[in-house]
């Protein structure tokens, strides 16, 4: 079975857009630190937000500061990862929801053909949720190794990159 080109492009979109990769990695660190029910709930909240954001795009919402919100979320997630703070679900779920909405709003389809654009939006929803689940699983595994040092370092890198990108966008 061959997937439509729009779906394939949509699946690849979250993992080929650098700002989205940074945001997904940051949120993945937060989700991966939680045990399974809470981690799965964070991923579900993100998927829900992503669907809402993509729905808003389909509804015709124009340009928004979604990319900056996404990077602000990545900064927060990176700091949480660097400080090795285990965020309770009532705080992590809204963060995941907002990140999902922002990622959705920042993923307009790159096609003017309705059928292909819808396929891209569906692909983006599936790709974003799947990518987050895989990153969270990897983070969960790595967290057990050497007291999660790798995750702390990754968190500090993610936060530093997001802070610098935001500074560059706002000043240049």
């Amino acid at each position: 079975m061959v997937l439509p080109a729009g779906i394939v492009a949509g699946l690849a979109h979250p993992v080929t857009t650098p700002a989205h990769v940074i945001a997904l990695m940051g949120l993945g660190l937060v989700a991966g630190r939680n045990v399974l029910p809470a981690g799965a709930a964070i991923i579900a909240a993100f998927a829900l937000g992503l669907a809402a954001g993509l729905g808003a795009i389909a509804w015709g919402v124009g340009e928004t500061p979604a990319s900056d919100v996404l990077l602000a979320g990545a900064t927060l997630c990176g700091l949480i990862g660097a400080l090795q703070v285990k965020v309770p679900l009532p705080l992590a779920a809204p963060l995941a929801l907002v990140s999902g909405i922002a990622l959705g709003l920042d993923s307009p389809p790159e096609s003017i053909l309705l059928r292909e654009a819808v396929a891209m939006l569906i692909g983006t929803a599936l790709g974003g949720a799947a990518a987050l689940a895989m990153i969270a699983f990897a983070a969960c595994v790595i967290a057990r190794w050497r007291h999660g040092i790798v995750l702390r370092v990754a968190g500090s890198w993610i936060a530093a990159i997001a802070i610098l990108v935001l500074a560059l966008r706002w000043t240049l």
Binding site: I22, A160, V165, L168
Partner: peptide, 10 residues
């Protein structure tokens, strides 16, 4: 912005 920041930090 992203290439510079990521390259710098990594």
């Amino acid at each position: 912005a992203i290439a510079f920041s990521a390259g710098f930090v990594v």
